[in-house]
Amino acid sequence: MKTISKYYPLLPVLAVYFIMFLVGKNVSGMWQLVAMLLFYCALGQAFNIFLGMTGYVDFGYVAFMGVGTYGMAVTITQLAHVEGLGFLVITIGFLMALLFSTLLSLAVGAVALRLKGAYFAIATIGVNEGLRFFIEGARIWNGSEGLIFMAELNQILGRKTASALATFWADIMVLFIAMSAAYVTLLFMRSKIGYALTALREDEEAAKVMGINVTKYKIIAFITSACFAGLLGAASWALKTPYVFPPEVFEIHYTIEAIIIVLLGGAGTLLGPVIGGLIYGLSKYYLSIYMPGFQLLIFAPIIIVIIVIFPEGIIGMLKNRFKDTSLARFII
């Protein structure tokens, strides 16, 4: 009983995803919107594991999605001529995405995680640009021309399956990534890792003196968060749109979106990124219809207001409001 009650907070998260899935599947014309919302929820949940739980800002976060996309793209282009691999190629692609994002997070983390606060942020702000210019400058993976692998994907899976993958199954993979990220977040929160991260987020020096190896726990959160980003890039970018150009996949815009989602919903909460992702995705969608090009103009002041007036975000506020009620065990 005790072990089951530990997982209560997952219920609202799963409920939201389930409703989204049902709406997308049953209301005609809605799947595309739902797919976009799933992407934002997954992005928020992945980013929250680092930003929310450690309180460190990684401005170069999109780079992990970028290398994840490349992991999938490179695998598909390299293995296209091997006969009869089929879905194994996609599996290898995801493994490569994981490998690339892990390697990058180790490289960045080795330098940046030694630094505190502002210096960490400064070190990360150039990661995405640096990587983009490295790929373009040294002409790796076709440099600035990028990789286009529509034909290879069709060759591997067949035109029909490839199309079903792009329009439906890739989104299901994103949903799966989002749910896994939520589960891992809860697992962290309920374990020593979560306690260590809370302590170091609140007061790093005091945490050290309490016996917490802060570097170790920061690295755990950083790599985990990076791996989810890599998978997300592979599923949502490489498989849905079978091409990859350096300026697109290293665009800081996605880091901005991730920050908005996490802050809006509530940094460090489990349900927050889902709610943040939903609100952000829906507003972006309708703004792009009614006021195209104005999304950021509207969202930038909103983030400023959140930071200044209610830094705990929507779920953070609800959590405080329902603290002593029976709802409390569902909202964290």
Partner: peptide, 21 residues
């Protein structure tokens, strides 16, 4: 065979990391 402009910008990032390190 390289793009000097892009590499120059990459270099500034590398310098940043080295100094911070």
């Amino acid at each position: 065979g390289v793009e000097p402009f892009a590499l120059t910008r990459f270099l500034s990032f590398v310098i940043l990391l080295i100094i911070l390190l």
